[in-house]
Design a protein around this nucleic acid. Structure first.
Lengths: 227, 227, 227, 227
DNA sequence: GATGAATGAGGATTCATTCAT
DNA sequence: CATGAATGAATCCTCATTCAT
C-alpha cells in the first residue's frame, strides 16, 4: 500500500522554478553538490530513510558534516534535489523510447522495457526515490510527494490509453484505474527484483507487457492474435 | 518501488508461537495493550514512520510515556504487535469470502472486493502497516519485513492461478509475475483512495477484477462472453 | 584505593536501633524479607551496584516488583538490611575463633583463617557488601559507609596489637597503619580469589598470617622460633 | 573486598594502539577532551560512579551536554580515556623514582613514597579511577577492569621480589601473595587518607615501607633461621 | 569554500516509587 | 499481604543546524 511513492517514470516536466535570478553556481560548487547527492542516494538506498542522517551521508562522501549544510539549505532541499535529479534522468531515458512506437500497446511495452532497463543500472536511485517519496512529510504530517506529484504520469498514460480506445486498438475500461495499476505493477517488478537480485527482470518486463496487453486489447473480431 | 510493503491480504496464518507457556495477560493488561496499539496505528497513519515517537503515541492515548515501555518491551515489539494484529484482522475478513468461490476469477474478484471493503473501515490500519513494512530495518540496515514476509501470499495466489490454468479457466502465464502484479494493483488502489478520499473504491475494485480477468482468462474457443 | 569498603570482619556490634517499640514482624513477613535480602545479595554480587535494580531483584526472587517496596521503605533500607545481615553473620563466625587464641599473632592468624573460611561459602555476601559499601552515598554525594563505619574494626585490632606490644610479643609500630593494612590485605585476598576461583585461598591465608607475623614480631633476642 | 580495583601504580605501558592511522586531533579538540576528562574525574571523585552522569559532567565543565558526545564516542570511551590518562600520569611519576634504587626494599620504599606523593596532589584522579575500576562492567555483568588488568603490576612486583630473593636480600615467601598485599596496603593508605584528610600520609608511607621490610627481609646473617 | 566545534531539542529506555485493587 | 499498573524523572545518545575560524 502507500502507493503514493511511485515515481513518474516517463514524464518529467520538472519545475525549473526559482533557478533563474540566482547566482550561476561555479563548477566546483556543482561538482560538490553532485557528489553529495550521489552519496545521499546511496545512503538512502542502503540504510533507508530513518537510517540516513547528514552525518552518515557526509561520512560516505568523505567530507565534513558541515559541507552539506553549506551547499544545501537543509536536509529537505537535499532530498528535493535528489528527486529532481532522478526524475530528470528517468525521463531522458524512457521518453524517447516510447515516442517511436505507433500503437498504445507498443508504447506501453517500450515503457515497461525501458524502465526495467533503467532500473538495472540505477538500483540505488530508485530505492532512494522510494524512501524519499514514502517518508518526507511537511510539518503537519502531510506527505510532501503525494498524489498530485504522480498526476502528470497518470495523465500521460490515460491519454495514451484513450488514443488506443479511440482507434479501436483497446477495449473500453477505466483509464485511471488502468494507469494506476500499470504504474503499480512496474513498481512491484522493481521491488521484487530488489528483493531477489537473481530474478530475470527482462522476462518479467515482457510478461508484464503481455499481461496488460491481454487486459487492454479489444477482443479480436475473429482470430485472436496475441502479442 | 519498494514494493516489499504489501501486506498479506488474504492469508494470515500467524505464528501463535511462544504465546503458550507465558503468563496469561490480565484483562486490564489486554485492554491497555489494545489501546496503545490503536493509538500507535493512528499515529503511524497520520504522522508517518519518522514522525511517530513513543511520546507522540502516549500523548494521543492520553497516558504517560512510560506506560508504553511498561506494556511493550520496546518500540520494536510494539510495531510487531501492530503487524500481527492487522494481519490477523485482514485474514479473518478476507479468507472466508474467497473460499466460497468456485472459480479462480471468482475467488480473485472476491479477494479484491473484500480487501477493498476492509480498507474502507480500516484506513489507518493499512496505512500504519505500510509505514512499518516500508521502514523497519534491523541493525545492519536490512528490511525487517522483506520479501520473505510476502512469500506466503504470493504462494497462495500462485496456487489459485495454477488451479485455474489446469482447469482451462485461465491462459498460460507466469504465475509469479501475475501474483506480484495483483498484489501491487490492490495496494495501489488503496493508496489512490487514501490520496483521493472521494474516489469510488468499490468501482475501482470491480474494474480491477475485470482487468485481471481479461489478463488471465483463456481465450474463449468461440463466442467470447466477458464478465 | 577506595578502601572505605572493607567490611568489619570480626567485630559486629550492630546498632539494634529502633527495633524495639515496633510491631513484631510476623513469621511470613520475616520470611519474605529474608528471601528478598538473599535475592538482593545475589544480584549485587553478580551484576554490581549499577546493574542492580529493584526489578532485577524481584525477578530473581520470582516476585512482583512492588513487594520489595512493600517490605522495605526503599532501596536504601534494603541495602542497610543487607549490610546488617552480612555483618552479623561474619561476626558470629569469626569472633569465637579469635577469642580462643592467647597470643596476638595467634589471634590474627585465627582471624585471617576464619575470614577466609567464611568467604569460601559466602562469596556473594561479601561481594554484595563490597558493592554497597563502595557505592552507597547520601544526597550530597558523601559515602554512607565511610571511615566511621570501619572504625570499630580498626580499634579492636589496634587493641590486639597494643596488647602484643606490651607483652613483648610484637615490635613497636604504628598500630593504626598496621590495622588498616591487615584489613586491606584480607580484602585483597578475597578479591584475588574472586578473580581467580582456582586460587588456593587457605594457602593464601597462611601466607598472609606469616607475612604479618614477620612484620609485627619483635626481633627474637636469640634463637628465634617462629610459629 | 572487591580488590580488583587497584591501579597499576608503577607500571604503565599503555597500549598506544590504533592511535596511528587516525586523524591527528587538533589543538582545540585536545584541549576540550582534556577539559572534559578533568571535569569527569572530579565528578566521579565527588559524586561516585552512580552519581556521575554526562549531564553532571557537562554542568561542571560549563558546557552543553552534547559536547561530550561530540568528543567521545560515549560514556564508555570517556571512562576508558580517564583510565588511560591517570595510568600514564602515575607511571611517569613513579617509575623513574623506583629505578634509581639498587635494592628491592629500597625500590619498594621508593614506590610507596612516590605513590603517596602523587596521591597528595591527585586525590580526585585516584578516586575516579577507583570508581571506574570498581563499577564498570560489560553487558553480561563481568568487570571491565578485572584481574587481567592488574596482572602487569603484580608481575613487575613479583620480579622485583624474586631478584631480592636470589640476591639473598629477601626471605622466601610467596611472591604473588606479597605483591597482592603490597598493592592492597598502598590502596588502603590512600583510602584512609581520603577519609581522614589530616592523616599524615608521608608518615604512613614510611611506616608501610617498614612493615614490608620486616615482612620480606631475610633474617640477619647469623643465628637466624626463618621458618 | 570548507571545517571542526558546539548546541539543544528530541529519541528510546530504565528506574524507584506510589497506589488502587 | 500481594500485585499489577502507572508515573515522571533521569539516563545516554543522535541529530540537524549554526557559527567562528
Amino acid at each position: 500500500m502507500c502507493r503514493a511513492d511511485r515515481s513518474c517514470y516517463f514524464l518529467a516536466v520538472r519545475s525549473e522554478n526559482a533557478t533563474a535570478g540566482q547566482k550561476r553556481p561555479s563548477f566546483i560548487e556543482e561538482a560538490r553538490r553532485a557528489q553529495i547527492i550521489e552519496s545521499a542516494i546511496e545512503t538512502f538506498a542502503e540504510l533507508g530513510y530513518a537510517g540516513t542522517s547528514l552525518a552518515r551521508i557526509a561520512e560516505r562522501a568523505g567530507i565534513s558534516k558541515g559541507v552539506i549544510s553549506y551547499h544545501f539549505a537543509g536536509k529537505t532541499e537535499l532530498m528535493e534535489q535528489i528527486v529532481e535529479e532522478v526524475y530528470r534522468e528517468i525521463g531522458e531515458f524512457v521518453l524517447p523510447r516510447m515516442e517511436e512506437q505507433p500503437t498504445a500497446c507498443g508504447a506501453l511495452r517500450a515503457n515497461i522495457r525501458s524502465v526495467a532497463a533503467y532500473m538495472r543500472d540505477r538500483r540505488a536511485h530508485l530505492l532512494a526515490l522510494g524512501e524519499i517519496f514514502h517518508n518526507v512529510r511537511d510539518a503537519e504530517g502531510r506527505r510532501r510527494y503525494g498524489a498530485a506529484f504522480n498526476e502528470p504520469v497518470h495523465r500521460a498514460r490515460e491519454e495514451l490509453f484513450r488514443r488506443g480506445q479511440r482507434s479501436g486498438e483497446l477495449r473500453r475500461f477505466d483509464t485511471r484505474v488502468m494507469a494506476v495499476s500499470v504504474q503499480a505493477a512496474i513498481d512491484a517488478m522493481f521491488a521484487y527484483w530488489v528483493a531477489h537480485p537473481d530474478h530475470d527482470m527482462a522476462a518479467h518486463a515482457e510478461e508484464l507487457a503481455d499481461l496488460f496487453e491481454h487486459a487492454m486489447r479489444a477482443a479480436a473480431p475473429e482470430g485472436v492474435v496475441e502479442r
